[in-house]
Lab assay of single mutants.
Amino acid sequence: CHSECLGNCSQPDDPTKCVACRNFYLDGRCVETCPPPYYHFQDWRCVNFSFCQDLHHKCKNSRRQGCHQYVIHNNKCIPECPSGYTMNSSNLLCTPCLGPCPKVCHLLEGEKTIDSVTSAQELRGCTVINGSLIINIRGGNNLAAELEANLGLIEEISGYLKIRRSYALVSLSFFRKLRLIRGETLEIGNYSFYALDNQNLRQLWDWSKHNLTITQGKLFFHYNPKLCLSEIHKMEEVSGTKGRQERNDIALKTNGDQASCENELLKFSYIRTSFDKILLRWEPYWPPDFRDLLGFMLFYKEAPYQNVTEFDGQDACGSNSWTVVDIDPPLRSNDPKSQNHPGWLMRGLKPWTQYAIFVKTLVTFSDERRTYGAKSDIIYVQTDATNPSVPLDPISVSNSSSQIILKWKPPSDPNGNITHYLVFWERQAEDSELFELDYCLKGLKLPSRTWSPPFESEDSQKHNQSEYEDSAGECCSCPKTDSQILKELEESSFRKTFEDYLHNVVFVPRKT
C-alpha cells in the first residue's frame, strides 16, 4: 500500500485506493498535508475557505447554543480562536489581540433580562453583547459592586439597553466600559436606550469621564423622579442622539420631579488639616426662599486615587461607600458681607490618608415646582503625618564578641513616609551569675543571650482551647457569634421535631 494509506488498500502504491488515510483526505486521495488554498479540518480532512465560511455563517444565523462559528488559524479551520487571539470578521482569520481579548457573548432569543446578581454573573467577562440587555433589578445585597464585577467589562451592545423598574439602582456607572450601543435591534418605538419607572436612579454616568455613542435609535425617559433633566440632556449631547427624540420621548413632568437638581456650584473657602482632623468651610448658599434650606450634607471617604465619582458603590438597598454628615444651616444675616460661612470639623480620621470630599445642599421643593440647590466639586484632601507606631517583631542576635545583629519589621501604621529608623542602645553591667558559677561542674549549661522565638506554653494553649472559665478566673470563653447562636437554635429545633416524629412513629394507638 501507499505510504499515506492506513489499515489496508485495494490497489498497491495508489493513494486513492486506501481504506483510511494516515494524515489527511483531499478529493478522494490521501495526502501528507493540505496544500494551499485548503485548510486542515478536524485533523483528517482538507477543506477550502468557502466550506469553513459556510459553517461560520450557519452557526451565526441559527443562534443555536453550542454550535461553533468556525475560524481560520495556522492553516486550520477550527471552532474558535485560541487564547490571546480574536477573529477578523472580513476573512475569519485569528489575529493577536492588542491588550485583553474581546469576548463576544451571543444571547438566546436576542435579549437577556438581568433581574438578579445570579443572572448578571452569566455575563461575567463579556466585552461584546450580541443582542439586547434588559435591566430589571428590584433589590439585593452589595448590588453596585456585584454588577460592576460582572457587567463592568461590557464595551458594546449590538441591540438596545433597557432599564425598567430597577428600584435598587442609583447610577449606571457599573457599566464602566460601555462605549457603544449599535441599535441594530430596537425596542418598540425605535428606541435604543429605554429608561422607565426607576424610582431611585439619580445618575446615568459621570459624563466628564465617560463617552457613549448610540449609532441608531432614540432615547426614552419616563417616570424617573430623581433623575434630573440636565442629566438626560447631557446624554443626548454626548451620545449623538440630540435631535432624534420626539416631543413625548422625554417626559418633562415625570423626570426629576422629586430630585434636588443642583444648578449652582458650592466653593470651599477654608481648608485646614491635622493628622486626624480636617476643618472645612464653604461659601454660604440661600435659595430664593431661605426657609427652603434644610441644611447641608457632607460626604467623605478614603480615596487612594483621584478618580472618585459621587455615586460609586451606591445602591438604593443601603450600600453606600460614603460617610454622610448632616449639618444645620448657619444663622442668616441681613448683611451679605457678614454672612457666616458654614463648615464642619471632621474628626477621627487616619493620618497621612487622602480623602475625597464634597458637600451639597438639602432643600425642600418650592411652590413653583422649581428645584434649587448647590453642590461642590469633589475635592481631595490629605491629612498630615504623625509619629508612626512601633516597629514590629524586633530580633537581636550576637554573632561574635563585638557585634549584635538587630532586625525588625516595619510598623503596622507608618502614618507617613518613613525615611529612617533611630536605634538606641545602652551598655549593661555583666551578670554576677557568670562569676559565681563553678565551671568545672559536669552538665553545666552556660547562660545564653542568643534570641529564641517566643512560644506559647501548654497552660496558655489549654486556656485558649477551654470553653469555660478556669477556677483562677484568668480566662473566659469568647462570646458566641450570631451565626453560632442561630445554628444552635436550628439544631435544637431539629432535635425537638425529630423526637416528636419518633414518638408518633414508635407509639401507635392500640386498636379498641
Rank of each mutant, 00 (worst) to 15 (best):
H106E: 08
L108Y: 14
D115S: 10
V117Y: 06
V117L: 08
S119A: 04
S119I: 09
S119K: 05
S119H: 12
Q121K: 04
E122W: 13
E122V: 06
L123W: 05
G125W: 05
G125L: 10
C126S: 01
T127W: 15
I129K: 00
G131V: 01
I134F: 07
I135A: 05
N136S: 06
R138I: 05
R138P: 05
G140T: 13
N141F: 08
N141I: 10
N141Q: 12
N141A: 15
E146P: 08
L147P: 01
A149S: 07
N150K: 05
N150T: 04
L151K: 01
G152H: 15
L153A: 12
E155M: 05
E155I: 08
E156R: 03
G159W: 03
K162I: 03
I163F: 02
S166P: 03
A168T: 12
A168S: 04
L169G: 08
S171N: 09
S171P: 00
S171K: 11
L172S: 05
L172V: 14
L172D: 03
F174H: 06
F175S: 00
F175V: 08
L180I: 15
L180R: 09
G183N: 06
E187Q: 07
G189T: 01
G189R: 10
N190Y: 09
N190M: 14
F193H: 04
Y194L: 11
Y194I: 13
L196F: 14
Q199K: 14
N200L: 09
L201H: 01
R202L: 06
Q203D: 14
Q203F: 11
L204F: 14
L204Q: 04
D206S: 08
K209L: 11
K209W: 07
K209G: 10
H210W: 05
N211I: 08
T213A: 09
T213C: 13
T215E: 10
Q216R: 06
G217A: 05
K218V: 11
K218M: 06
F221M: 09
F221G: 05
H222A: 08
Y223T: 02
N224P: 02
P225R: 03
K226M: 05
K226V: 06
L227A: 06
C228P: 01
C228R: 00
C228T: 03
E231S: 10
M235G: 03
M235R: 03
V238T: 06
V238W: 06
T241A: 14
K242A: 07
G243A: 07
Q245G: 08
R247M: 06
D249Y: 07
I250S: 04
A251T: 14
A251R: 07
A251S: 07
L252T: 09
K253G: 15
T254I: 12
G256H: 08
G256Q: 06
D257S: 05
Q258G: 02
S260I: 04
C261P: 01
C261G: 04
N263Q: 12
N263T: 11
E264C: 03
L265R: 10
L265V: 12
L266T: 02
F268G: 01
F268T: 02
S269L: 12
I271R: 01
F275R: 15
I278T: 13
L279R: 11
R281I: 14
W282L: 03
E283I: 06
P284L: 03
P287A: 01
D289Q: 01
F290K: 00
R291M: 00
R291G: 01
D292E: 01
D292C: 13
L294D: 06
G295Q: 15
G295D: 02
L298F: 13
F299C: 02
F299D: 06
K301W: 02
A303N: 07
Y305P: 11
Q306P: 15
Q306T: 14
Q306L: 10
V308K: 09
V308R: 08
F311Q: 09
D312T: 15
C317D: 09
S319Y: 06
S319D: 09
S321R: 13
T323A: 14
T323Q: 15
V325K: 03
V325C: 15
D328N: 13
D328K: 10
P329V: 05
P330L: 09
L331H: 10
L331R: 12
S333G: 09
S333T: 09
S333H: 13
N334P: 08
P336L: 08
S338K: 13
Q339D: 11
P342D: 09
G343C: 09
M346H: 05
R347V: 05
G348Y: 03
K350F: 09
T353M: 03
T353H: 13
Q354P: 08
A356K: 05
A356Y: 02
T361K: 00
T361D: 00
L362N: 02
S366L: 01
D367T: 07
E368K: 10
R369L: 07
R369N: 10
R369T: 05
R370S: 05
T371Y: 14
Y372K: 02
K375V: 01
S376P: 02
D377L: 03
I378P: 04
I378S: 03
I378Y: 11
I379E: 08
A385R: 09
T386A: 10
S389Q: 01
V390R: 15
L392M: 14
D393A: 15
D393Q: 13
D393T: 14
P394W: 03
S398P: 09
N399P: 15
S401R: 15
I404C: 04
I404S: 00
I404M: 13
I404Q: 15
W408K: 06
W408T: 01
